[in-house]
Simulated assay, not measured.
Amino acid sequence: MEKLLYAAELVREDGTYKLVVQDVVRDTVQVTPVPESAVARLPAFLSVLSSKLGSASARGRW
Rank of each mutant, 00 (worst) to 15 (best):
M1K: 07
M1R: 06
E2I: 07
K3Q: 11
L4F: 00
L5Y: 04
L5P: 00
Y6S: 11
A7G: 09
E9T: 12
E9F: 11
R12P: 01
R12T: 09
E13G: 10
E13C: 12
D14T: 10
Y17M: 02
L19E: 01
L19W: 02
L19V: 02
L19Q: 01
V20D: 04
V20T: 08
Q22Y: 07
D23T: 05
V24I: 13
V24Q: 05
V24K: 05
V25T: 13
V25I: 15
R26G: 07
R26F: 01
D27C: 08
D27H: 12
D27Y: 04
T28F: 10
T28R: 15
V31P: 01
T32S: 13
P33K: 06
V34P: 00
V34D: 01
P35E: 04
E36M: 03
S37D: 06
V39S: 04
A40E: 01
A40Q: 00
R41M: 15
L42R: 12
P43D: 09
P43C: 06
A44L: 14
L46C: 11
L46N: 05
L46P: 01
V48N: 05
L49E: 09
S50M: 06
S51Q: 15
K52D: 09
K52G: 04
L53C: 12
L53A: 15
L53R: 08
G54L: 05
S55C: 06
A56M: 10
S57L: 10
A58V: 15
R59L: 11
R61K: 12
W62M: 12
